[in-house]
């Protein structure tokens, strides 16, 4: 736990409008809040249109953070749509040793091959496959969130899982099948993904 104390973690999300990068960012803020952290979760708004690249940010810390700027040197980067690799410099400012967490069917080495010069750690998550298997629908947010928590080591995993159950129970109180489906997607992601 010691390295999770006193340190601020900054995460930058890349997605396309309508894919839920903002939602995943706000879910992470919520999960971190439940863990007793100080949190910030905020999207960067541009011309809002479906499919346009969007960015969202998280700051997670044990102390209040008053900084209200965007994040230029993230500890980790989460990419919800792999087609962004050729469109946006997702690695911009990524700190040494920072993890690239990416929703893809590719392997970590295949992802690195697409990013010349990048030799840092990668965490691949096939969020669509996990979501289809566990929820029967493509909601990549829950697997992405779980992968970010696992790869960033920013939250205590057991606490995170129990907090998320409460959160899903609250959110889906009239759709109980969504509670179990989301929990299974969360657990499966936590079990399967690793930083390579």
């Amino acid at each position: 736990m010691s390295e999770k104390q006193g340190k601020m973690t900054e995460i930058r999300w890349h997605g396309r409008g309508g894919q839920g990068a903002k939602t995943a960012c706000l879910l992470l803020a919520e999960a971190a809040f439940f863990s007793g952290k100080y949190v910030q979760g905020f999207p960067e708004y541009g011309p809002e249109r479906m499919g346009a690249p969007i960015t969202a940010y998280n700051r997670i810390s044990d102390e209040e953070c008053t900084v209200h700027s965007n994040i230029y040197t993230p500890d980790h980067v989460a990419v919800v749509d792999e087609t962004l690799l050729s469109a946006v410099d997702v690695l911009s400012g990524l700190k040494e040793g920072g993890v690239l967490i990416i929703n893809t069917t590719k392997t970590a080495d295949e992802v690195r091959d697409e990013l010349p010069g990048f030799e840092g750690p990668v965490c691949v998550v096939d969020a669509k496959k996990i979501s289809m298997e566990m929820l029967g629908r493509n909601f990549p947010n829950t697997p992405m969130l779980a992968a970010v928590v696992k790869a960033s080591d920013v939250l205590d995993e057991e606490r995170f899982i129990s907090d998320m159950r409460k959160s899903f129970e609250h959110k889906f109180h009239d759709k109980p099948e969504m509670i179990e489906g989301n929990m299974k997607a969360l657990q499966k992601t936590m079990d399967e993904v690793r930083v390579e």
Binding site: L26, A29, E30, F33, Y38, V39, Q40, G41, F42, P43, Y45, E64, H68
Partner: peptide, 12 residues
């Protein structure tokens, strides 16, 4: 308040 920065930013 500052639009988007605090209006849409979630924090404690």
């Amino acid at each position: 308040q500052d639009g988007f920065i605090t209006s849409h930013g979630v924090s404690n």
